[in-house]
Design a protein around this nucleic acid. Structure first.
Lengths: 185, 185
DNA sequence: ACCTGAACACCGTTCAAGT
DNA sequence: ACCTGAACACCGTTCAAGT
């Protein structure tokens, strides 16, 4: 039997449809069978492009992490750049809350420190006076802090009044920056 | 047909067995059917004690949170008390990593601020000079920070050398306390 | 009140077969 | 190379029936 559709499946199509389904009904609402139905394809066809559901989720998270837009080095003080990075992270996560919730509970998916987000964080932390040997540890912690706040937010524990959310995120950034100040002294 | 076992099922027995299975193979490794088999009971018997799998996980998390041992008010400075609370949290989470991973990604499960952990945190934050109106927000953020670090740790992103873990957690506590200092000024 | 088996509507994935 | 249907070994949960 030939393909049910005109064009052949591509991995990009699979990924972007998966992201849409996850946005609509969460990671636990995504199944290989629903995804295949959405693509008008036999469930098993997916397995020619992806090794397993877990691998697909990994791929989806990796592309989401790569697509995150990084604030450029504009020469401003590290405090401002750190805040800008936090806000970029925050904004991106709010666009795909369920996906980032999954990503943050499977941190091995963004453990590669060559990713743009880590490189940007390293650059800002150097600016803040963090010694080279402490960069991995410090960046992991700051990432964990932000991840924790984003999970709390996207999983709906924090208020859903946007102004309240902003004030809360501001406080988080404020706390982190104050904590960092001891390194730049 | 009568019960396969001598004694009748209790909710406590269900919970503690669920915790054991989660410790052994993670939340995604727990199924109602496996749990029933472990209890030597028909899968459907569980539903006379628990409304659904989700409700069971909520109950398991709630009892875990209640059981957490809180450091008492020993009159020491807030910095030390905050550190002690963080360590208690950390130790407890490392005993049941999978469970706390689940708990932290379903933060509504510990959103009740009457829980001992919140009351203890409130007390310490008051000591640190946080104004009453800022207590909920500040405690949510600090909890999110610690949750993020614990998820990163238990999900195995951070090193598994115990000494390294301790240094990393120390840095996290250090950052948080430094960040808080601005409130007690 | 508590427990049971059969059944329903789903899963992810393997396999052998098709083009 | 890419896709397919049938099948396997699982899920959570409903329901009607048993004691």
């Amino acid at each position: 039997m030939s393909a049910r559709r005109g064009t052949p499946l591509t991995i990009e199509e699979i990924c972007s449809t998966a992201v849409r389904l996850i946005d609509e009904s969460g990671v636990e609402g995504l199944s290989m069978r629903k995804l295949a139905a959405e693509l008008d394809v036999n469930p098993m066809s997916l397995y020619h492009h992806v090794e397993s559901k877990e691998a697909l989720l990994g791929l989806v998270c990796a592309t989401a992490a790569e697509r995150m837009h990084m604030p450029p080095d504009d020469g401003s003080p590290w405090q401002e750049q750190l805040k800008a990075l936090g806000l970029a992270y925050h904004r991106h996560a709010l666009e795909h809350p369920a996906l980032w919730g999954y990503l943050h509970t499977h941190p091995q998916l963004i453990s590669d420190h060559r990713l743009a987000i880590w490189q940007t964080l390293y650059r800002i932390l150097r600016l803040a006076g963090v010694p080279e040997s402490e960069l991995p540890r410090t960046s992991e912690i700051l990432n964990a802090f932000v991840a924790g706040v984003i999970v709390a937010e996207t999983q709906g524990r924090l208020s859903d009044d946007p102004e309240e959310i902003d004030r809360t995120f501001d406080l988080a950034v404020h706390l982190i920056i104050n904590g960092m100040v001891s390194f730049s002294a």
